[in-house]
Design a protein around this nucleic acid. Structure first.
Lengths: 224, 224
DNA sequence: AGACGCTTGTGAACGTGTGCACAAAGTTGC
DNA sequence: GCAACTTTGTGCACACGTTCACAAGCGTCT
């Protein structure tokens, strides 16, 4: 299955869930594509990799298709996740409701700061980073989420990998290297913002962009 | 400039900044590519879209190249950003240090909950969502960050667009439609986790995956 | 049963992105 | 000043992803 298709399956899953909640039983590729924001031919080709689950002349049965995608992605199993780094972002991730409903379970929270260890966040006690290897092994954790400062990211990833974690989601603004066979995905606000800025600059954006000084004055006048 | 190249420029910028901090003055495409985690030919091709800023036989001057990329992306200007939705994630974003250093300035925080309005977060007073349009116009905001619950995301984006925002970064786990000409990027934990799960399932992951029941027992035994 | 209308699934063309391999161009050493 | 060495910039071939367009298949209506 093409990587691009894999990346869109969660999108389709979300659209299907919304439709199911509205009580829709059947949906055509055209409708589903519209609500997922993609081209209908692309949607059909993507779904065709799963098998022939549609009915010509009718469309796709929402619940059935949802189940097939869920199975394909592997969400019928429960995935234990450890979050490393319980700062602002770690807190937000620990409290994020979208995990549990999709088969991900925050199994442990870890931080290197002794001051944070023992604190209870989202119903779990924060544990010390020294225990990381033990935690990963005891809880059968396969997915690690890194929400540490940039300087700690590489070390944390190395330790996660050494402990047997083979999938890592990195939120730290750092370039991290992992060995072959380990999946590393990164989520980076700063990068996304910079991509937006690039396009903004090439639109009417020049008019809206201010010098730092002008902006500071404005901000003070309005917010202060 | 190809979209794929634009998406990598921030990566190069980060690598260059790290090198500059280490006092490195010159870098070859091979070295820079290694530290950015990409192929050196790709790096050179990407940089060639900026112009011919390298010296054959030598490499690239770190500071100079950094400046060129900064300019190309548009980070020499100050971009005013509004964050909508000051929950856990909004807090984390407001306090994220990586913005200011890259030319982005959190100019305003907005929330629909009257209970949060007036609260001070990251040195700014949270203002009510009703004022959104006014704030966008007064502060010359070009980029909006949406960190609301999923159900509010579409409405917030519509209002941002109506107020003149043409670049939006959406953190809400929702599929949002925007008119032509508006750039919408999304950052979605859940999607990223699902992509990881897909690959994990196709590796040795089956061994690590537990049923929900087994996992709950384990978790209780270890965390409880 | 047969004709008609609708929607899927997919072959084929097109466009974008990647990576090799090398000529061009600069630096260094003698 | 010239030869040897290093590294950039890029033409070209290939791989990947997207979109069109339509045949195949299913349901419905007469």
């Amino acid at each position: 299955m093409p990587e691009a298709t894999v990346a869109r399956l969660p999108l389709y899953l979300r659209a299907l869930t919304t439709l199911a909640e509205r009580g829709v039983a059947t949906v055509s590729s055209e409708e589903l594509a519209a609500s997922a924001g993609v081209n209908s031919a692309k949607l059909r080709k993507d779904l065709s990799y799963l098998g022939s689950y549609g009915t010509r002349g009718v469309g796709y049965e929402v619940d059935f298709l949802r189940h097939q995608i869920t199975r394909e992605i592997g969400l019928t199993q429960d995935w234990a996740v450890v979050i490393v780094g319980i700062g602002n972002l770690g807190h937000a991730l620990a409290n994020y409701g979208g995990f549990a409903s999709r088969g991900f379970r925050i199994a442990a929270l870890v931080d290197a700061d002794p001051g944070r260890v023992g604190e209870e966040v989202a119903g779990l006690k924060v544990r010390h980073a020294d225990e990381l290897e033990q935690i990963v092994q005891d809880l059968g954790i396969a997915i690690g989420v890194v929400a540490t400062p940039a300087r700690a990211a590489q070390l944390v990833c190395d330790r996660l990998v050494a402990a047997g974690v083979t999938s890592i989601l990195n939120f730290a603004p750092a370039i991290v290297q992992v060995p072959e066979g380990v999946d590393l995905r990164k989520v980076d606000l700063s990068t996304e913002m910079q991509i937006l800025a690039y396009h903004e600059q090439r639109k009417n954006g020049a008019a809206l962009a201010l010098t730092a000084e002008q902006a500071a004055e404005l901000a003070e006048a309005v917010n202060g």
